[in-house]
């Protein structure tokens, strides 16, 4: 998409102009310097709607170079419509190489999941964030929540978690489960299931979070402590599906429930499509595939 003489509208490499990318990179650097702190930035309108990954796309556009290899996932899958749309956007505007293999990517943009394959040093995971403020549903006003972060006043959050336990016997938050970063800021991990929270802790990869509509960027540098909030007598636990993936037989991974028929038949398969495919290529088979092979 280089400038064409006579065209009435033209665009830069990776869509954003260089001034904007520099501004966003400054915000990213500040975010890295203060892990978990939400850095306000002058978010731009993007050619996809707010709430569809504009924050993540801006972060990706600002860090992407011509030599990068990009992977985009949504719900853990490379082939969901919005992931395809964003991947094609960068193919078109930046011409970068793309991949579905977690291990081959230098930049991974994600919505709602962290890949099952552990990330490596040098990789960047870019999260799309709808509501960056973990305290938002306890206090709707930004003026108040910023003050609460500044004063490290997180009592309200603990009261909320305590009330969950008093009412339900356990904490009733299953995704966007709040974490404390490097012992200071309480942070929203974006609406990833809490199953993925432990993967953020001491990750060798750089984790960047972009919230376009709310105009915030935050970051977790490599090897940073990320602790899910809990109580001594009610320690944090992750979901356990109690069964392996029906296709690749993987255990202790996040599973999607797929309805098979209108008689209540269902199976559970890996949410991370790349992880599932790589395992199947390596010869693993779950009950559904094993059953097919037997037939």
């Amino acid at each position: 998409m280089n400038a064409t003489a006579g065209a009435i509208a033209t665009y830069n490499f990776a869509y954003l102009d260089e001034q904007t990318k520099r501004m966003i990179r400054r915000a990213i650097l500040k975010g890295i310097a203060i892990p978990g702190y939400q850095v306000p930035f002058a978010s731009r309108e993007m050619p996809m709607p707010y709430g569809w990954g504009t924050g993540g796309v801006q972060v990706t556009a600002s860090i992407l170079g011509p030599d990068d290899t990009l992977k985009v996932i949504d719900q853990g899958a490379d082939d969901t419509t919005n992931a395809i749309s964003i991947r094609k956007f960068f193919q078109k505007t930046a011409g970068v190489a793309t991949t579905t293999r977690t291990g081959d990517a230098t930049v991974i943009q994600t919505r709602h999941r962290i890949p099952e394959t552990p990330l490596k040093s040098g990789q960047v995971l870019v999260y799309q964030v709808p509501i960056p403020e973990p305290l938002r549903f306890l206090e709707p006003r930004e003026t108040e929540t910023r003050k609460m972060h500044a004063l490290e006043e997180y009592g309200l959050m603990h009261v909320k978690l305590y009330e969950d336990i008093a009412r339900n016997g356990h904490i009733a938050t299953t995704y966007a489960y709040p974490v404390k970063v490097e012992g200071r800021y309480v942070m929203d991990p974006s609406p990833t299931p809490k199953f993925d929270n432990p993967k953020m802790h001491m990750s060798p990869a750089l984790q960047l979070f972009g919230a376009g509509r709310e105009k915030r960027i935050y970051a977790i540098p490599p090897f940073t402590r990320v602790v899910s909030l809990d109580f001594e007598d009610h320690p944090f636990t992750v979901q356990d599906f109690g069964r392996p993936c029906a296709l690749c037989g993987a255990e202790h991974v996040y599973l999607d429930e797929v309805i098979l028929d209108d008689a209540g038949g269902r199976m559970f398969i890996c949410s991370d499509t790349d992880h599932c495919e790589e395992r199947r290529e390596a010869g693993h088979a779950g009950e559904m595939l094993a059953g097919e092979a037997a037939q």
Binding site: D74, N82, R111, R113, T174, Y175
Partner: peptide, 10 residues
């Protein structure tokens, strides 16, 4: 947009 990962958790 799909929200099935979170919906699964719910």
């Amino acid at each position: 947009l799909p929200h099935y990962v979170d919906f699964q958790a719910e």
